[in-house]
Design a protein around this nucleic acid. Structure first.
Length: 869
RNA sequence: GGGCGAAUAGCUCAGUGGUUAGAGCGCCUGCCUUACAAGCAGGAGGCCACAGGUUCAAGUCCUGUUUCGCCCACCA
């Protein structure tokens, strides 16, 4: 067998496995295989750039489950793909162009799109490469892109179908407009943020004399005012309803109307109404039949036909100037500091401008209704997210799906320029079906990216065609994603899935937290706390990153990760590597014993523990308990297998090389399997050296238990460990270096035979030499110090250093401690209610504990009396 | 304004109602012991946010309070 490097080097190992995995199609489910299906779609990463740590988290969890299910024998499919990410990608490409001093308009639509496709090609390759480096076991033969031919057909099918059902319509509404991206946004693409602003109190003169004061944070919108509104119940203004106010600076006459939407307690209780630039005002406008005057254009500049003073100015510059003019002319009553929330474009951070515009919408009510009715068909993990999803559906508003950008699915709508007919069909129209005109023009706008995303579980599996894949793998089994896109993605996939397939697109949704830095802060470039997963893969390896992430995932909590945690995982990876090295170097002719009962206590102990670990870990995998998977695997391996069994195996191998080699190999092989879903690379590599099956780990079977458990050996092994630990701590407590060999004694009534038989191991692991096993307790003497336990006593000789008084002191302290504990337990055992109501198990536990403590106390007292005589 | 989550060791976090609350990192002491110094051995460090309640028994369940964080909402 070849010798392994002393330190695990993922950079040497990983490329080989990436090649082997992805060149051999092992992640492509076999057509003819039977068995339960486990299918999952990759939440498609954007083609904007690189994988970030959030992807790494979600996809790691996906892969852990996928690899586990595959080993468990499920016919497993993980469909990958990428998302065109309309606004985001268009923005990055525009930024690239800006470096050459160009805008997309300089290129024109066609040329610009060519550029974006080039970009997409480059970053698609980049991301696919990164996903492979992370070890994610996707079936790349089924890769999809949200704008590929197939997905585009799915989008078209969905659009046409919804249109024909009347669920897609074009309407003039107040929408959120980003003046920088120059497009409409849906409501959830706007992020609200607290801002310190001013509240301006402005006097609107009344036609009949006097004035009414209104309060606003956006004085620039007054140019578009077409009314003043008050609450109908507001006694202050009742007499003014129906009267006319004069808009300052402009001179326009504004009716004073009464509307319930006005909150009397806010500001002065009077509201300026700008129907074209505020959703509430728009509603008021409809109710009172008011005109809508647009005064801010698509660039966010003022464009007021009635007054050209401000036209062409940026909305915020105009604000300052208008305030100045109002003040000069005596219209400004007062200005107050005011904190409120302003909406910003999710993609670029620009303050969003609400404006009246003609856009395409999906009517959501009926879709949401269906999703609500069939709520019970989906499982949320953790369950609490269901309510979040639920509440959103209950208050759902129509979805603005048109975007005034170029990169995306062009809306499949044609207008007849002669008769104004709107044509929406699966095939591109050649002429107007109504007037036969050839003068047709396609809609310029493209669809919201999330429209295609909402079809992802269906479109990746073949829909709208009912393909074999679709029949076999749809609906998918599980979706893992972050809580930040429950509205954007999860809810919409569910609605579309039900609409088009009458099925939930997935049976379970596992909602992860978001990745933050080790202090719980968001990762951001400005804070300099961003962890780049690919950098970690380079430095520490994908396995370490995956393990660190998994170990931090608890249901729904945010994941705080720092460099230390990653290094800890790297250390663990290296520990596994070195254990493998040790095993390879040590084993000789492994032979499985005829009967496991013939093995030594330690082997029986580790085999019992191995079985237990298989069961525990399997349970955790089944329940998506990721941090527990990591913890159980870590602790079994490091604290038990390495710290004890491997150390002891160094002795056992001398007498019994074949059997012990077998135990070492069996445990290690089994362990590699249990670990494989979390750390695919290192486990595959080590497996190559020790495997006893003719396959690689990725397609091997989940380990079965031996069905072996020997309670006596578990107890006995633990006694030996306790003896060793007692001696070690006694030594070091006395300031003797661990390495220094000193003489010592053990005495035990119950376990004398056991200790006698394991004397060499104890002596060696505790560095006690010579070690004498006594048949009676050792009478106190100068230079001897003891550690008395219920099952045994240990003693060490430390020369003349310690005097009897100190030893007496130590023992007295211990007795005190123990008596306190005994008192507590006895009180409990005297308690009537406890005896009456507690479970028998709990009572028995207390009794055993008391017995042991009493035994220990007796021994301590005995030693004390010997010492004092 | 409504909803949700969190509060446990110096830090980041686990903790199926069972009584002596754990881990990793950090810290202290001693070790390059022939798998591993990315390691080994030993150790220190906690009124489990606060106040009530339920229970034989509460870090764990209930109520309230405080402090942080997040989401939602048309008070301009």
């Amino acid at each position: 067998m070849r010798e392994l490097a002393k330190v695990y080097n993922p950079r040497e190992i990983a490329p080989k496995w990436i090649e082997r995995w992805f060149n051999s199609n092992i992640f492509v489910p076999k057509v003819d295989r039977e068995g339960s299906i486990f299918s999952i779609v990759l939440p498609p990463p954007n083609v904007t750039g690189n994988l970030h740590i959030g992807h790494a988290l979600g996809f790691t969890l996906d892969d852990i489950v996928v690899r586990y299910k595959r080993m468990k024998g499920f016919v497993t499919l993980w469909v990958p793909g990428t998302d065109h990410a309309g606004i985001a990608t268009q923005n990055v490409v525009e930024k690239e162009l800006a470096k050459e001093g160009l805008t997309r308009y300089d290129l024109g639509r066609e040329k610009f799109l060519e550029k974006v496709w080039e970009w997409k090609e480059r970053y698609r390759n980049n991301i696919v490469n990164q996903l492979k480096q992370m070890g994610f076991s996707c079936d790349w033969s089924r890769e999809r892109f949200t704008m590929d031919e197939h997905c585009s057909r799915a989008v078209r099918t969905a659009f046409v179908s919804l249109y024909k059902k009347g669920l897609i319509y074009k309407g003039e509404r107040i929408i959120n407009w980003c003046p920088r991206c120059k497009t409409a946004l849906s409501d959830i693409e706007v992020e609200y943020e607290e801002a310190k602003d001013k509240l301006y109190y402005i006097r609107y003169p009344l036609k009949d004399g006097g004035y009414i004061t209104i309060a606003t944070v956006r004085p620039e919108t007054m140019l578009g005012d077409t009314a003043v509104a008050v609450n109908p119940e507001d006694y202050r203004y009742k007499s003014l309803i129906g009267k006319v106010a004069i808009l300052p600076l402009v001179g326009r006459e504004l009716p004073i109307v009464a509307d319930d939407a006005v909150e009397s307690s806010f500001g002065t209780g009077a509201l300026k109404v700008t129907p074209a630039h505020d959703p509430v005002d728009f509603e008021i406008g409809i109710r009172h039949n008011l005109p809508s005057l647009k005064v801010i254009d698509l660039d966010g500049n003022i464009d007021c036909p009635d007054l050209d003073t401000y036209t062409g100015l940026d909305r915020f510059t105009a604000r300052e100037l208008i305030v100045k003019h109002l003040e000069e002319k005596g219209y400004l009553e007062k200005v107050e500091d005011y904190t409120h929330s302003v909406g910003r474009c999710e993609r670029c951070g620009t303050i969003v401008e609400p404006l009246l515009s003609s856009q395409w919408f999906v009517a959501m009510k009926s879709l949401a209704q269906k999703a609500l009715e069939r709520d019970s068909e989906i499982r949320f993990i953790p369950e609490r997210w269901r309510k979040v999803y639920h509440d959103w559906l209950l208050n759902i508003k129509d979805w603005c799906i048109s975007r005034q950008i170029w990169w995306g699915h062009r809306i499949p709508v044609w207008y007849c320029l002669d008769c104004n007919e709107t044509i929406v069909e699966m095939e591109d129209p050649k002429y107007c079906p109504k007037c036969n005109s050839l003068n047709l023009k396609q809609e310029e706008d493209v669809l919201d990216t999330w429209f295609s995303s909402s079809l992802w579980p269906m479109s990746t599996l073949g829909w709208p065609d009912i393909t074999d894949d679709f029949k076999r793998f749809y609906p998918t089994s599980l979706l893992i994603t972050g809580y930040d896109i429950i509205y954007f993605w999860v809810a919409r996939m569910i609605m579309m899935g039900l609409e088009f397939t009458d099925k939930m697109p997935f049976k379970e949704v596992y909602i992860t937290g978001l990745v933050r830095d080790e202090k719980g802060r968001k990762m951001s470039k400005s804070l300099g706390n961003v962890i780049d997963p690919m950098e970690i893969v380079q430095e520490l390896g994908a396995d370490s990153l995956r393990f660190a992430l998994a170990s931090l995932v608890t249901e729904g909590q945010d994941v705080n990760i720092g460099k230390e945690r990653l290094e800890g995982a790297r250390n663990f990876t290296n520990k596994i590597w070195n254990a493998g090295r040790y095993i390879l170097m040590s084993i000789r002719n492994p032979v499985k014993p005829e009967s496991l009962d013939s093995l030594d206590v330690f082997s029986k102990w580790i085999l019992s523990l191995m079985d237990e670990t298989i069961e525990r870990v399997t349970y955790c995998y089944d329940n998506y308990d990721f941090n527990e998977i990591a913890q159980v695997l870590y602790s079994f391996f490091w604290d038990y297998f390495c710290d004890w069994y491997i150390e002891i195996s160094k002795f056992l191998l001398k007498d019994n090389p074949s059997y012990i080699s077998w135990v070492l190999l069996y445990v290690f092989r089994t362990y590699l399997k249990l670990l494989h879903p979390v750390m695919p690379f290192i486990t595959e590599e080590l497996w190559e050296y020790i495997k006893d099956e003719d396959n690689i780990l990725s397609v091997s079977n989940w380990p079965a238990v031996l069905g072996f458990r020997d309670e006596d050996s578990i107890k006995m092994a633990n006694v030996i460990f306790d003896v060793i630990k007692s001696m070690r701590s006694l030594k070091q407590e006395m300031g003797i270096s661990f390495e220094k060999k000193i003489p010592g004694f053990v005495h035990s009534e119950t376990y004398r035979e056991l200790i006698l038989s394991q004397r060499d191991i104890i002596s060696s692991l505790a560095k006690i030499e010579p070690l004498e096993v006594l048949s009676e307790i050792l009478p106190p003497q100068k230079g001897i110090i003891s550690n008395v336990k219920s099952d045994f006593d240990v003693y060490i000789r430390i020369g003349d250093v310690v005097d009897i008084d100190k030893e007496v002191e130590r023992i007295k302290e211990k007795i005190e401690e123990i008596e306190e504990q005994i008192a507590r337990i006895e009180e409990r055992l005297r308690n009537r209610d406890f005896l009456l109501k507690a479970k028998e198990e709990a009572k028995e536990k207390e009794r055993i504990k008391r017995e042991n403590l009493i035994k220990e106390r007796e021994k301590l007292l005995q030693r004390l009396s010997l010492l004092s005589s």
